[in-house]
Each structure stands twice: as C-alpha cells, then as structure tokens.
Simulated assay, not measured.
Amino acid sequence: MLIIKNVSKSFREATQTSTILNNIHWQINRAEWCSVVGPSGTGKTTLLHCISGLLQPDEGHVHFKGTDIYSLSEKKRSNWRRKHLGFIFQDFKLLPHYSVLDNVALPLIFDEAKGPLYDRAKEKLKLVGLEETFFSRLPGGLSGGEKQRVAIARSLIAEPDILICDEPTGNLDSDNRDKIADLFSELKKSGQAILMVTHDPEIARKGDKTYQLSGGSLFVKEVTA
C-alpha cells in the first residue's frame, strides 16, 4: 500500500547540517500495524511527516498505491491526505474556537452533508470513550487525555486507508491507553494500515513489527505477529 524509497532528510542550522533520515527504505501493507521506537530527537516525527506528505524529503519517493505523492500538486496532495490518511498529532492540532464535534468533522466539512457527517463524528467520539456531554465543549476546557481522544476520533472520520500516529497514547491513563490500543487492533483487522511512533514498549509490541530509528537508519527490532 505504502512504499518508501531512498528517503533522506537533513536540516541546516547555522553552519552545521544534520542528517535526520538517511536513505530510508520501507513498505507498509494493508492491515499491518508497524511501530517505530527510538530516543527523542532521532527523527521519528520527521519520518512521519515525510511519509504523510507534510514535509518533502530531500531525496527519495513515497508511493501510495503506485502514485508518488510528491509528484502531486500541493492541493492534490492535501486532498489525498484528507481522504486516505488519518494523522494523530502529538500536540493534537485542535482548533481552539471550534467545538469537539466540529473539530472531528472538520476534515470533511466541505465534502459531505453535515447531518450524516456529524452523525459519523459522534460515532467516532463514542469509539474513543467520549460521550455527548463533550460534543459541544471547546478544546480549552479539556484535559490532555481528552484532547488526545478527540484527535484520535478526528483521524478516523474519513475511514482512512492509513492511520499515522505520533505518540497517540502518551497523554492517556492506563485504562484509556489499553482501550485505544484495542481500538487500533480492531481497525487493523478491518484492513487499515497503522504506522505508530511510540515511547511505550507495551503499546509497540501490540503491532505486527517494531522498528528502531537510530542514526538516520530504520531497522526491524521485533516481529510480534
């Protein structure tokens, strides 16, 4: 489904250039959960952003079902991301002046009739354990864990082919963490591919494969499936 070929990315600060990703090769298949681990600062978020079309690599290609996403115009790439990819950001990216329900529906707000779309948004919120009392609230009135679950619900609104997760359980208590992990397992069974960066080894092991990102290189650390 997703093929990453020779992806490299460097950043320049003052007179020094730091190579974050070095010639990454990777393939993520349908109904596969891949976890990525590694110390902070090794480029895990950069890798996710390159794969998802948010940050163009210096070299290499990212193919989704045979199409190089960086050969698309910025507008077409944005539309591809909106319809085929769900992204759970580490810092949530919720719009502060929109309700919880609006935030979840927002990716498809211009594509679908509001009635069915908002019904689906409510279903996604209930999937992550947020009931109707939360729907009209603003993000500023939520705890970190509640914001995390709203961000997860939003990532699911388009029924994406690929779910890309940057520390999706980092703000959750152990009970909600386990419930979200179970939800991801069910999504995988339904055919979605899951690519997850996590510092939680227990969550990482729930996937099919765990990869280590270190020194700009990616290698298989553990196969659990």
Results as ranks from 00 to 15, higher is better:
110 F>E: 08
113 A>F: 13
76 K>P: 15
86 G>R: 01
126 K>I: 14
186 E>D: 15
176 N>I: 11
172 L>C: 05
135 F>K: 04
178 D>N: 11
164 I>Y: 07
172 L>I: 09
84 H>P: 14
74 E>W: 03
168 P>Q: 10
160 P>D: 03
160 P>L: 00
175 D>V: 12
155 S>N: 03
178 D>W: 14
175 D>L: 15
182 D>Y: 13
81 R>K: 01
137 R>I: 02
101 L>T: 05
160 P>C: 02
105 A>W: 01
94 L>N: 05
102 D>H: 14
103 N>T: 10
93 K>D: 07
87 F>S: 03
139 P>L: 08
197 V>L: 10
123 E>Y: 12
159 E>I: 04
75 K>P: 15
98 Y>W: 10
78 S>M: 09
137 R>V: 03
79 N>T: 15
82 R>P: 15
168 P>C: 10
84 H>A: 04
125 L>Q: 00
151 A>P: 07
124 K>S: 05
174 S>R: 02
191 G>E: 02
114 K>L: 11
182 D>Q: 11
152 I>D: 00
189 K>A: 11
206 K>W: 10
204 A>D: 00
167 E>R: 08
126 K>G: 09
130 L>P: 05
79 N>H: 13
111 D>W: 08
197 V>I: 09
160 P>E: 00
140 G>K: 08
92 F>M: 07
99 S>Q: 08
106 L>G: 06
191 G>S: 07
128 V>N: 03
139 P>G: 07
198 T>S: 02
188 K>G: 14
175 D>K: 09
196 M>E: 02
100 V>A: 13
176 N>Q: 03
160 P>Y: 13
106 L>S: 08
166 D>N: 01
201 P>H: 08
117 L>N: 06
